[in-house]
Design a binder for these strands. Structure first.
Lengths: 346, 346
DNA sequence: GCCCGTTATGCTCAAGGCTAGAATAACGCA
DNA sequence: TGCGTTATTCTAGCCTTGAGCATAACGGGC
């Protein structure tokens, strides 16, 4: 008897509070461990006219929140995604990214905002390369590289690690969030890798993944393979494959900031230019040159002054700006361009 | 009784033959009209371990072809996607883009290569803006715009048309393939819009779609609304929503060319720089400045000379180059950067 | 009231990248 | 040999970007 198919709708809901990007989680997750989960629920073919409407319904139910900007991220469909036993339904997951303003908080629902960088701590380089990277991840990756047979295999691992984590000539590429998470997963350096254990043999390649030539090779190494993992893996885990989804979301968001005015979905109606800059930095995980950032934003005609001022800046009052919605009808790719980070390298 | 869910796997298989991008189609389509379809088949939860493997299996079966580069595009899940009646299974479509070398042709299978620009003729601007755009599409869009009530609604339509099709100050943005197709669909200017008729009321927003502020407004206008459609709509139709998938694929491909060495998946082992340029132009739908294109490719260290030459160029023999696979391990975003098209504007 | 630290904002300069061509080299063919 | 065609190399000019310097405007000590 052929198994049925169930479609799960998963939401990565992001907001920026203070100077931190946060993601909305629900407690207890899908049933395996106690790690928090992203809000999700199955598509109801009868009730949900579209996938996005189904997602909104689930989010409303679980968090009491109405979503504004929503976009689809990726669809995960590996048989072993969630360790379903034979006979049970096959579960496909369609993942979404949603952006909301910081204030809207859940009320009476078992949902909570968590700092995104709790789950992906190596992605925050605003204060320079985090110690975790230098002292924890890079050495562990080196061990993983050395654990490979000496020839091409090892060179291949080295190349991948260098490119994804930015070593040697390769600079840090803020958008490769997913590549980094997947590398850590394969190297057995995140808790999920050990949790999934040997049941997770092969996975579909996921979105931004690079290296076009590798696509035919679907087999993925089961897990550790000799690397010395941190005590419980790097970063806090999420239920199921939700950390993978979160990584996909952050990568997509970082990429899209450059050519779409997405930040403004996360900001209040009016804001200072520094507020805008901090929000972008927070998401991109890097610091930006203030004057140049201003120039880009103003020359791009993304914002317009309101004439009002924010006095509590700690210094000279800053003018409050507002997003010029009209840009979207003027220029093809309006975004806040991320200039290279200044060489303030910690 | 709740309906079941079926997951369809759809492949947009692209190759470049001569100077034309082509897409592999199978005859007869899914059952509605006689239009050609993209190869597709349902996910078999028992046989297909991953979505991508399922896709490969279906493509092998229907076209006898082994796919190399494959990437997921988008998942379509509107209830009215294919006009399923009540009681039937709900059908979700996961769409993929695959790239293959030109030679591999189907044998004994009812599959055929069709020129991509047969279905999206307005996307080919290599010889300047096509007459179809100036004489057919723009006037029809103008009519559609005028058909809106005179206030904001009309301004909104105008803005969208200008941005997607490049009018006034806005330049042509080669990547907005999907936006353009969807605009034509909404304006009732493609055959599918009339075929789907009033059954297709709302759709999920699809990938690259711009205008972040509009996301909450899910309702889409049913169809025509007063525009004067061409005799049978612009461009040749495909079965189901396959033209939408094709548009998604072409847009994605155009975008990715810039930062991933995808072209080389479509080229033979060795090629001349002009061959490379023509292939890129063909996909991007625009002409490029020869000297600058060479400089970018060479400075990017994307290729290396072989020392051998292609004599049959019609002029001075051209050196044969080969893709330097190593780039992928050196630079973060190796692609063939598409500099702005020269102002040769026909 | 004056000095200081802090943030906002404006302006400048130099390096590097991109656009558009000019100029030159190497073929096939008449 | 001269012409048309394509390949390859170089250049001049403009614009963007990266990095600072300088000045303005505020709150708080003193």
């Amino acid at each position: 008897m052929p198994r049925h198919v169930t479609v799960g709708l998963h939401a990565t809901i992001v907001a920026v509070t203070g100077a931190e990007p946060r993601v909305l989680t629900v407690s207890g997750g899908g049933g395996d461990d106690g790690a928090p989960a992203l809000p999700f629920g199955p598509l109801d073919p009868d009730r949900h006219r579209t996938l996005e409407l189904g997602l909104r319904a689930w989010v409303r139910e679980q968090t009491g929140m109405e979503l504004a900007h929503v976009e689809q991220l990726y669809t995960f469909g590996d048989r072993d995604r969630v360790g379903t036993g034979d006979g049970e339904a096959r579960v496909i997951a369609v993942a979404y990214l949603a952006l909301v303003r910081e204030r809207q908080v859940a009320a009476g629902h078992p949902a909570a905002w968590e700092a995104v960088y709790r789950f992906l701590p190596w992605e925050d380089r605003r204060a320079g390369e985090p110690a975790l990277l230098r002292d924890g991840i890079r050495p562990a990756l080196d061990a993983w590289i050395e654990a490979a047979p000496a020839g091409d295999a090892r060179r291949e691992r080295r190349g991948r690690a260098d490119i994804t984590f930015g070593a040697g000539a390769a600079p840090w590429d803020a958008e490769r969030v997913l590549d980094r998470y997947e590398l850590l997963y394969e190297a057995g350096l995140v808790a999920e890798a050990r949790r999934d254990g040997s049941t997770a043999a092969a996975r579909d390649r996921t979105p931004g993944a690079g290296a076009s030539g590798r696509s035919a090779r679907l087999q993925r190494e089961p897990a550790a393979e000799g690397a010395a993992p941190g005590p419980a893996g790097f970063g806090a885990p999420l239920a199921l494959d939700h950390r993978r989804i979160l990584a996909t979301a952050l990568g997509r968001l970082r990429g899209k900031l450059k050519y779409r005015p997405l930040v403004f979905e996360l900001l209040p109606e009016t804001f200072t230019l520094l507020h805008l800059q901090r929000t972008v930095e927070t998401l991109a995980g890097v610091r930006l040159h203030k004057q140049n950032f201003r120039r880009l934003v103003e020359r791009g005609a993304l914002v317009e002054g309101t004439g009002r001022f924010e006095p509590a800046t700690g210094g000279r009052p800053a003018e409050l700006f507002r997003f010029r919605r009209a840009v979207q009808h003027e220029r093809p790719a309006p975004g806040v361009g991320l200039p290279g980070l200044p060489s303030s390298g910690s």
